[in-house]
Structure formats: C-alpha cells, structure tokens
C-alpha cells in the first residue's frame, strides 16, 4: 500500500517541465531527483516528500520520450501518479521502470494536501481525508503481466533465459 499527500497538477503536464532538458546529460536519477516538476513549481522538490502522490489532469507526461521524467519521479520517491490519461511513451516508460501510474478520471475529486492511499494491485484509491474511494481502470492483461514481472528488465531477462 502506498500512502502520501496529494499534489495536484493540471492537464498536459509535459516532460519538459517534469524534467527540463538541461538535466538530460545527467545519468544518475538520484542527482536529478531534486529537480522534478521544476518547470511548473521550482520549489516542488523541497516541498514534496518521498511517498507523496501526484494527482494530475489528462495526458500526463506528454512530449519528449526522456526517461529522466518518470525516472526522476521514481528516484525522488513519488509513490504514484494518478491521471485520467497518460501520454503513451510516458506510460510505457513508467510501467517499464516500476513507477506506479493509475488511470482514474474520477480521482480529480482529490484535493491538494489530502492524504491518499493507493493499492496498486487492485487499483483502489482512498482519499483518507474525505473518505472518498475511487477505482482506477485496470490495465490490459499483457501490461499487468509486465508489471507483475517487475518491469521490462525482468521481462527481458526471462525472455533471454537468464531468469
């Protein structure tokens, strides 16, 4: 179970603001983690805490395919990202590296600062501040298998006969 405070963002949050281009040559996710969401809120990395949850609008993660965007969020310790829809490359990247992402339009009812609990396996999202319960759309079986395998690295190891 993932539990943290909710941070709200609008529609079409793009990867240029999640992780600006100037950090692209930095390969270590731990080093870029403090700068997440810098393009929208330069202080986000100071205000947010590991375990916190991002609740955003539609098309989260659009734009550049840079994996430093979900990679930075994961390295920071963001517990999960909840949005009505995700841009497709961001969604693939997040699933591949094990950053929990949940598609749930109704979760827009969550307010900034609410304490939110997420059960990734069942897709159940509980706003513990208001008591509201939401259910994320389940991923297709193929993606669920990939998630259950622990992401693409483990999946590839299996396909290569190494695990």
């Amino acid at each position: 179970m993932i539990r943290g405070r909710a941070w709200k963002f609008g529609d079409d949050v793009n990867t240029d603001v999640i992780m600006p281009g100037k950090y692209l040559a930095m390969r270590n996710p731990e080093l870029i983690a403090p700068y997440i969401m810098e393009g929208i809120d330069p202080d986000f990395g100071k205000k947010a805490r590991p375990g916190d949850i991002i609740v955003a609008g539609k098309n989260f993660g659009c734009g550049s395919s840079r994996e430093t965007a979900p990679g930075g969020l994961k390295a920071f310790g963001i517990g999960a990202v909840i949005a009505p829809t995700f841009a497709r490359i961001f969604l693939r990247n997040a699933v591949n590296i094990g950053l929990p992402v949940l598609e749930c339009p109704a979760a827009a009812g969550i307010r900034e600062g609410d304490l939110v609990a997420v059960d990734v396996a069942s897709g159940r999202i509980t706003d513990e501040t208001t008591g509201a319960i939401y259910h994320a759309a389940p991923f297709p079986p193929f993606l669920q298998e990939l998630i259950a395998a622990g992401g693409l690295v483990n999946y590839a190891r299996k396909r290569l006969g190494l695990a």
């Binding site: 979900p70 490359i89 693939r92 990247n93 193929f142 396909r159 290569l160």
Partner: peptide, 20 residues
C-alpha cells in the same frame, strides 16, 4: 514510433517489442 531508453534496451536485447 518513439520509446524511452528502457524500451530501447529491450528491443536491442530481444529484437522484438510489445506494441498495442
């Protein structure tokens, strides 16, 4: 189509990729 670097590694290793 474009992918991130983990997907790129997967296709470089396996010569295949999952697509919807």
């Amino acid at each position: 189509t474009g992918v991130g670097h983990t997907d790129l590694a997967g296709v470089l290793a396996l010569g295949e990729i999952w697509l919807k």
